[in-house]
Nucleic acid binder design. Structure first.
Length: 461
RNA sequence: GUGAUUGUAGCUCAGCUGGUUAGAGCGCUGGUUUGUGGCACCAGAGGUCGCCGGUUCGAACCCGGUCUUUCACCCCA
């Protein structure tokens, strides 16, 4: 008996059965759509070598990696000099592994390791937790699940178009009506940097311009100025803002002129148009799909299309995001493989559906019938009945202890079990079972066969 | 990583400027009802006031540290 109350680490959570039922609803919905589009499931380990993970997410990302201390005498390799030099020198000698930060990089590692066994294009999905040493906040946890779907080994823009369709299908299944799938292209952003005369600074441009919605143009231009953008460059950027309330088509027309001098920019626009064209051919409706030229996204490995999905009316960050990465496997020694993928954030989707009160009131995961027995003889007979019920595919349980019937009913009530089957002396001698519908309160004495059909298809009023 | 913020019974919260045995509602357990849950009534159990240290005759309350919660920034699912 420990006196001290146990606890869990910062940003980690337990999920009780009610929460798990709802989380599984989200997982199942997403997996179903992934499979419908030909994606197959893959799992990779929680831990990767730190060398696999570092340098893929930008400097900020590297700092958010959870490092795992080497086992054994982990200080052995550290010299006094290393120690005096600080963490930078000590870290690589005491930690060689880390927890995965996303599912895309481990997937790229997998593709390189198994390059000769894989049939391309390779479509896989992955539903696993990832870890980030971030400060927790609403909608931001240190351990959370991602549902990733990626295709590698093709640069066809049909993949991008299909991603849009998949996102729309998932949201339709959840019954979400008000949301925006923002789509942009890193090449368009590069083109923007080029035409304003700040080639090579697209990183800073992205970070600043991404905040436009949040902090407004004035603050964004201030930030750009501080990052070393010239006044002329910032002024040259302002026409982009004018496209704010236009249609996707009008925005494309604008950028054709705006980016005319930039070959990357033109390429990006072509890709955008093609994605939207394929999307239309797949029967996609452009409702909810927004070409957003100021969408940037932080991860450094994206090179083509980028996506992000936000739900209106809730103060929760994006619930889905992704993009194309042309050379992610390159850093692991396999160049020339293009990939595109996206991910749903289950934990945020949960918060969104919860805030909007949109979870179905399903009881799919709970017991359908509980056996309540008056004594030992009844209970022993109940065990046989229990086995029959389960054979019939009915989720059933028996109250294991010989306690007052009232207590057994209480248990069924608390657990929201829709039926209680009662076994007493009378039932035992008549070879019957009294079945009570806990919602209606009605009770009938039935044969076992009738109990099975009644539980499966309730007819009792 | 920077700046704030929170922590009292299983849950939601009271607790006046530091003063005797820390309270409520809900929940829980038992009973009224030894073949029936939800309702009602009655009774009961549960807290070294996040943790460690300090100030004080005396700390849930003041001070310091630490952990945790929430929030803004950074960044992100």
């Amino acid at each position: 008996m420990s006196k001290q109350k146990p606890s869990i680490p910062k940003g980690m959570r337990d999920f009780d059965p009610a929460e798990m039922a709802r989380r599984n609803y989200i997982f199942d919905t997403i997996k179903e759509v992934f499979k419908l589009f030909g994606y197959q499931q893959l799992e990779t380990p929680a831990m990767e070598n730190l060398s696999t993970l570092t340098g893929k997410y930008g400097e900020e990302g590297d700092q958010l990696l959870f490092k795992v201390l080497n086992s054994g005498e982990f200080l052995k390799k550290v010299s006094k000099d290393d120690f005096n030099e600080g963490e930078r020198n000590v870290l690589p000698k005491i930690a060689e592994k880390g927890l995965r930060y996303d599912l895309t990089v481990p997937f790229a590692r997998y593709v390189v390791m198994h390059q000769n066994e894989i049939t391309y294009p390779f479509k896989r999905f992955q539903v696993q937790p990832v870890w980030r040493a971030d400060r927790p906040q609403k909608g931001r946890y240190r351990e959370f699940y991602q549902c990733d779907a990626d295709v590698v080994g093709t640069d066809s823009l049909i993949c991008e178009a299909e991603i849009l369709v998949m996102i729309k299908q998932v949201f339709a299944k959840f019954g979400l009506m008000d949301y925006a799938i923002k789509i942009n292209n890193r090449k368009i952003l590069s083109g923007m940097a080029e035409v304003i005369g700040e080639t090579g600074k697209e990183g800073d441009l992205c970070v600043a311009i991404d905040k436009l919605d949040k902090i407004g143009w004035e603050k964004v231009s201030e930030e750009l100025f501080q990052k070393g953008f010239s006044k002329e460059a910032i002024a040259a950027l302002s026409p982009v803002l004018e496209t704010n309330h236009k249609s996707n088509f009008e925005r494309l027309q604008f950028f054709k002129e705006y980016l005319a001098q930039s070959s990357v920019g033109r390429k990006g626009l072509e890709e955008m148009e093609e994605v939207l064209a394929f999307f239309a051919m797949l029967g996609g409706n452009e409702k909810h799909v927004v070409f957003d030229p100021v969408l940037a996204r932080g991860l450094s490995y994206y090179t083509g299309a980028i996506f992000e999905v936000k739900v209106d009316g809730v103060q929760i960050g994006s619930v889905s995001g992704g993009g194309r990465y042309d050379n992610l496997t390159g850093v692991f020694g396999l160049p020339g493989i293009s990939g595109v993928g996206f991910s749903f954030g289950v934990d945020r989707l949960y918060d969104v559906l919860d805030a909007l009160d949109m979870f179905p009131v399903q009881q799919k995961e709970s017991t359908q019938v509980m056996l309540a027995c008056f004594g030992e003889m009844e209970r022993n007979k109940g065990l046989k009945i229990l086995a029959t019920l389960r054979e019939a595919g009915i989720a059933a349980e028996i109250y294991p202890d010989l306690v007052k019937i009232k207590k057994q009913f209480n248990y069924a009530d608390k657990k929201n079990i829709p039926f209680v089957a009662i076994l007493g002396a009378e039932e035992l001698s008549n070879e019957t079972i009294s079945l009570k519908n806990m919602k209606t309160g009605k009770q009938e004495t039935l044969s076992l066969e009738r109990v099975i059909s009644e539980v499966k298809n309730p007819t009792m009023e």
